[in-house]
Design a protein around this nucleic acid. Structure first.
Lengths: 165, 165
DNA sequence: CTTGGAAAGTCAACAAGGCTGACGTAAATC
DNA sequence: GATTTACGTCAGCCTTGTTGACTTTCCAAG
């Protein structure tokens, strides 16, 4: 790979290349969500439910405020989703023992099964893509994504990474 | 690039690594849309308008059906957005000369200026990310994204790439 | 020339999932 | 005791997606 020197290795920073990157993100994100979306629409759930399930799975016992911050939505919006998940027995909400104002969220067995079903579908595509391009490309992929995040989200992301590792 | 051998180079394919990739996509996509979104909300436009402007800019003279296929929405949904863009003088719709049923879409000067404003914001973030990680990582990024797309979308993407190169 | 069907546009109704604003309650904290 | 925090909820709005039905325009095949 020809590398950065004077002004020659910078061809990857042209507007044209950046536009291609933008389009790649757009089309790839569609693929990224397509498989779980297909499963979700067979029930009465949407992408918002999937996101909640994902992060509760990832950080069991997380509080509502914490989830709010990670998802970047209002509590009214989250509550609508969380309400149905709790009513359907996918999520359990538990009063905090240290601070009883807080609610700690957990997946039930049923919720865990659903989360796994959704994640399996999403991971299958990721795995195929990863396998097709190899570890070096994957590392680059992760580096670019991390660099694209808002600083706040990068911190949230890294906190999850550590916790989940 | 250290490659797949027995079972050691495959650590990047673990569920844990795949989950991190999924989260990276989620947070990065938020960053990806954040800057144009901020501009759009000052007018009466949304992300759907941005997407239409982007692809009309990219493929001037494209037809409505073609745009429909690329964006993956219904004509009713696209039409609502296109209607406002045309009424506001950002997009010009021209009857096809070969086939007069088709409408060919073009940006007006005003529309081009808006598209550039939105793209500039989005590209600035991409450029910063690209610059921060270097060309090799960017190549990996593009490879993974392309591998994640649905085949149909990959073809649409590659057609755009060639056309726009 | 007629007719079938494709391309486009439009109307109506609906749903998901964002948002704001206001208000209530319980618990912690000052 | 007063204030602040965390959460829940009601009401209403917007964007952007959906389906279904219908019309107009027009190409092309019979």
């Amino acid at each position: 790979m020809a590398e950065t020197s004077g002004g020659e290795g910078l061809l990857y920073l042209t507007d044209e290349q950046l536009r291609k990157g933008i389009e790649a993100m757009f089309f790839a994100y569609r693929g990224f969500t397509a498989d779980p979306d297909r499963i979700l629409e067979t029930m009465e759930y949407g992408r918002a439910h999937h996101r909640a399930l994902h992060f509760i799975h990832r950080a069991p016992g997380t509080t509502v405020s914490n989830l709010l911050a990670i998802l970047g939505v209002t509590k009214q919006s989250l509550n609508r989703v969380l309400r149905t998940l709790i009513d359907d027995g996918h999520v359990r909400s538990e009063k905090g023992r240290k601070d009883a104002r807080e609610r700690h969220l957990f997946l039930t067995e049923k919720g865990d099964a659903l989360e796994r079903q959704l994640s399996d579908a999403q991971r299958a595509r990721m795995r195929a893509a990863y396998r097709a391009v190899g570890p070096a490309a994957v590392q680059g992929f992760r580096q670019v994504l991390e660099a694209m995040m808002d600083p706040d989200m990068r911190h949230a992301y890294n906190r999850l990474k550590e916790g989940g590792a």
